[in-house]
């Protein structure tokens, strides 16, 4: 019984403490860099699209809100022909970012994306693609991968030996 009264008294005392509420939008809160907000597609340090259209983000997505179509340029570099995220379905879980092998898809600190029309929440590639590298500045998938693309021949990637000359008789 006393404990009850003590509890009531303690609650009453809270009337004299300062509220912890941050008065958004008058006051903007601090958001950590790893905040899971609006999703973007980044570019590699050379300014090319990072996304290679591997479909891993779409398969990781628990609400299936990512759809894309992969394609290839004439030199073998892959990129998404179109890339769509339906933010009216997105739950900002960040699984797509975790699944992405090229750091292309990243979640940002922007969460102010309310719309009056749900259709405006469907973001296409031109809405998603930014001009920078986002959170991971150095990485360029094609410098590591073994495929040949325009400007990078076989054997020119990191940790690659030059291509084998099949016609050589040397052991």
């Amino acid at each position: 019984m006393l404990k009850l009264l003590k509890g009531i008294w303690l609650v009453f005392l809270h009337a004299f403490t300062r509220p912890v509420t941050i008065q958004y939008p008058d006051v903007k809160p601090y958001l950590p860099p790893r905040w899971r907000g609006r999703i973007i597609l980044s570019r590699d340090p050379d300014g090319e699209e990072r996304c290679v259209g591997c479909y891993l983000c779409s398969v990781a997505c628990p609400v299936d809100c990512i759809a894309l179509q992969a394609t290839e340029d004439e030199h073998g570099r892959r990129y998404p022909a179109w890339f769509r995220i339906n933010f009216s379905r997105c739950i900002f879980c960040g699984y797509c970012e975790e699944a992405c092998p090229t750091y292309a898809i990243q979640l940002t600190t922007d969460f102010e994306m309310s719309e009056y029309d749900r259709r405006n929440l469907v973001y296409e590639k031109e809405d998603l693609l930014i001009s920078g590298t986002g959170k991971y500045p150095g990485y360029n998938f094609y410098r590591v991968s073994g495929v040949q693309i325009g400007g990078k021949d076989k054997g020119e990637a990191e940790h690659e030996a030059s291509p084998i000359d099949l016609r050589s008789l040397m052991p």
Binding site: V11, H14, A15, T17, R18, P19, V20, T21, Q23
Partner: peptide, 10 residues
């Protein structure tokens, strides 16, 4: 309002 005060919010 009162619940807010007692719960440290507005």
């Amino acid at each position: 309002r009162l619940l807010g005060f007692w719960q440290e919010r507005y």
